[in-house]
Write a protein that binds this DNA or RNA. Sequence first.
RNA 1: GCCUUUGUAGCUUAACGGAUAGAGCUUCGGCCUCCGAAGCCGAAAAUGCGGGUUCGAUUCCCGCCAAAGGCGCCA
Length: 669
Amino acid sequence: MKQALIKVLEHLIVSMGITDVTPQVEIPDDLSHGDYSSNVAMILAKRLKKSPLVIAQEIKEKLQATGYGQQAKIPNLNTVQSGQKQSPHGNYFAVLQDIEKIEVASPGFINFWLALPSLNRYLSGVLTTAYSVKRTADSDEIESTEVKNILPATSNKLPAQKIMVEFAHPNTHKAFHIGHLRNISTGESIVRLLEAVGHKVIRVNYQGDVGMHIAKCLYGILQAFSAQGKALNFLDENESKTPEEKVELLGKAYAAGSKAFEEDERAKATIKDYNFLIYASAQRFNKERGLTPSSTDYLKFIKSRKDVVDQIFKLWKNTRQWSLDYFATIYKRLGTTYQRYYFESECLNGVDIAQESVKKGILSKSEGAIIFNGKPFALDTRVFVNSLGLPTYEAKELALSQIEFSEFGKLDRIIHVVGPEQASFFQVTFKVEELLGIQKNQQLHLVYGWVKLKHGKMSSRSGNVVLGEWLIEEAKKAIYEILDKSKSKYSKAEQNDVAEKTAVAAVKYSFLKVSTKQEIAFDLEESVNFNGDSGPYIQYTYARCKSVLRNANTQNYELRQPKAVPLLVEITNYELNAEEKQVLRKLYQFPEIVLQAANNYSPNTLCEYVYDLASLYNTFYNKHTVLGEKKNVKRENDVSHFRLALTSATAEILKQGLYLLGIETLERM
RNA sequence: GCCUUUGUAGCUUAACGGAUAGAGCUUCGGCCUCCGAAGCCGAAAAUGCGGGUUCGAUUCCCGCCAAAGGCGCCA
């Protein structure tokens, strides 16, 4: 609709002699300004040397001349355009059938109101998809919905792309904290939004499983948590523990190792040695897996304790798996899956790429290291291979991008969901990859802001972290309190299901409603808030809608039969009240909001929409009765039918909106 | 020193250069003998400072102040 209006205005201003301006049409914040609004008259004011109001009035009159809202007059349109008898303009102007009112507002806006029939047509469309899904399901519940059904009108204009979204990337042996939670919430929603507008998306996760942080952790294990400092004893003793307990142990070991690294010179030297051993272990692991190893033999760097090679290998490989097993439980909890897990350990041949790049003159040697000199490109200078011969994150990234661009056919884009501290890193690696011919302008660093504590900074070294799962558990506790007070009777299993889904929703929504780049000042109370602009509020509204619909069923309304849908369009003699109109118009905006959220990578746009819709529905619900024949409210049947349709459509859109945010709905809560 | 990002009610925040800066939390006052009160209605409260561009600036440009991140051997 928006695009169609832009086309109409574009054609109109061409007839006014303007060819190089693309009119803008937007959905006004305030519904009293219509469903769509254009500022085209104000843009033209200077060019035409007339007042914006006059221009707006002229445009309005030209549009009126087409007889909008009346199909019969549309064919006459071509006379508006001089000298183009067989022009396709009639098609463009056909959109005006759906407009019932055009107004000019100071200082020169042209506002459009949609005609009721077109709103109703959309409502029917929503319900038809809802029914079609319901009919294929054997239960009363609507199964997870295919969003695409509601979106083709706006989405099919974009060329579909193949896009890789890389997100989550926790490091093994380290804590999974609320920053990762935000990363996953954001990435998951971006994936779903891109899919909803027609793109093919590949979900991947890049995890750091080599490096100093692991050397510190292993050192901590061998020093403090292992009988006689034997790796095998440690593994045997703890093998039967739960994934949570295992990673907790790793976290403690990491803290201990970090402390030793800073305070004890001998420990520091040992940890550095361990780091080489980990690289050597990774190479050995790659050989086992049949991956091509890099040309560097890391064992030659080890100064002492060659006897621990086997120990470190087993310890690294097993504890690495502990972390991965634990991460898997979290991904499952959050409803996230990945097609491919990448690891730093498989990117060690970045050293070889870096060395070739030196020959090509793209990277250079300096003080024993291989660096990229950023000055000619106004970028930072960064180290790719350190003077010890170990690849840094940068060199590994070169190897990674080679793999990523080769494994899934031709990719149009790779989106890296990563924090702001890596902006310089990505600018440099993107540039080097461009110079190497790996990619050109195909990658995007999608920055998500840090999650900071209101007081103090998160640091897994000092142990001052808010763990992801801890937060979800806190939210669950709060929900159990509400459930205990509630009158609804649930079994233990049902309670747990409600608490789990509501808790995840609360946490995810609290991250997603803030714009992606914005830092979040973490506040427990805010994250587990169930009132107002929150995930549970939307879920509650959905559950409320479903409750009404269940009641309608028991009271023998026929709305839930597909045949009742056409009835909606026939309701023309019923004057809709203000609240009904507000909900109806909001529903209509859904596809365009999804498109906007996808194109801007901004789930918060969708959060705002979903909240507005829920809020408008709740206002309507409180003021008017949908069924309400219980006491003395007597009403024409078709009013109830319309309101049930509105309720059903609201439920459907809320469900789909939440799905795109990665949040599940509950039929009861 | 250089680069980047961010400053909006007491707190957390929204607003492709548009209309009266929109919410939530908190506070205060109302609404369950009617479909779910995790709800609804009402009140109070904000664009860091100074310039500029524009019909119009929270948004773009310049300067200042403040915070965060980054800038050859961490990831």
